[in-house]
Structures are given as structure tokens and as C-alpha cells.
Amino acid sequence: MTQPALAPRNAFTGVVVVWAVAFLAAAAIGIFVAEDWRIPWMLVGFGGAVLLSFAVQLWYGRTDGFIFRVAGSIIGALLLMGVISIGFGIAALIPA
């Protein structure tokens, strides 16, 4: 028999943490990395977000909704990093 958690952690907090880290990683990559290397580093940043998503949700320690939380974290990070990379791509087309 399992005992219920007395004060369970908020599951949505872990999802938001992954989104925030993905946003910061995409912004840092866009600012500090040369244009030729942005896409490979965005892939590395997204891979880090995927690993962080699993780590955060495993740390959370609850099995119910695990796939939903991980999928929400990963899809949100993918969309966020995609929108930011589109913004940097459009900015690269504008002559300086």
C-alpha cells in the first residue's frame, strides 16, 4: 500500500522551469554564438532541455501524469526555442 504525499509539489512548476531554461539557453545562443553555429547549438540546447525535463519530472517523484508533464515540457521548449530561432533568422536577413 502506498501512502499519499502530505504536501505534493506543484507539477506545473517543473514544466515552467524547463521552459525558462530553454528560453535563457536560446537567448544566450542567439546573442553569443556566431550566425553559422546557431542552429547546431540550438540543437544542443534543445537536447539539454529534453534531459532537464526528464530530470525534473523524475525528481518530482510522482508517476501519475509523468508522460503528460514531460511532453508538455518538451513541446513547450521546442516551440519556444523555435520561435526565438525564427526571430534570430529574420533579424539575420535584415541588413545592418
Rank of each mutant, 00 (worst) to 15 (best):
V16R: 12
F23G: 10
T13M: 12
G47R: 00
I75T: 15
G61V: 07
W37T: 01
E35R: 14
G30L: 06
L24M: 15
S85R: 13
L78R: 07
F32E: 12
A96F: 12
A71D: 02
N10D: 14
A11W: 09
T13Y: 12
E35S: 13
G47F: 08
W59P: 05
G65P: 01
R62L: 04
G89F: 08
L51W: 06
P4I: 10
V44G: 02
V70P: 01
G72V: 00
G47E: 02
A91P: 00
I84N: 07
A91D: 08
W37S: 13
G45Q: 05
V50R: 05
A34E: 14
A7Y: 13
F32Y: 14
Y60L: 13
Y60E: 09
E35T: 11
A5D: 11
V17D: 05
R38M: 08
A27P: 02
D36Y: 09
V17P: 03
Q57T: 08
A28P: 01
I31Q: 11
G72L: 02
I94D: 06
G61W: 10
W19E: 08
Q57P: 03
V15K: 00
G47P: 03
F23P: 01
V15S: 08
I94L: 15
G14L: 05
G45R: 05
I90R: 09
F54S: 05
I75W: 14
A28E: 03
F46C: 06
I29K: 00
D64G: 07
I84Y: 04
W59A: 15
L51R: 07
A92H: 09
S85E: 14
I74W: 00
T13Q: 11
G65E: 04
I90Q: 09
Y60S: 02
G65C: 06
P4M: 09
G72S: 06
A49F: 05
Q57C: 08
W41L: 15
A7R: 12
V50W: 06
R62Q: 12
L24N: 11
A49L: 04
I86M: 13
W41P: 05
F46A: 02
F66D: 03
A96M: 10
L93P: 05
F46W: 00
R62M: 03
S53H: 02
L78T: 11
A7L: 13
A26P: 00
I67A: 14
A49S: 14
W41S: 01
R38K: 15
Q3R: 13
R69K: 03
G48A: 14
P40E: 04
W37F: 15
V21W: 03
Y60G: 07
A55Q: 10
L51G: 09
F66K: 01
R9Y: 10
I94P: 05
I84C: 04
L24A: 15
V83S: 15
V18I: 12
G48Q: 00
V18H: 04
I94S: 06
R69H: 11
A20R: 07
P95Y: 01
P8N: 06
L79P: 03
F68R: 13
F66L: 12
L43E: 07
L43A: 15
F68M: 08
L78Y: 11
G45P: 03
I84L: 12
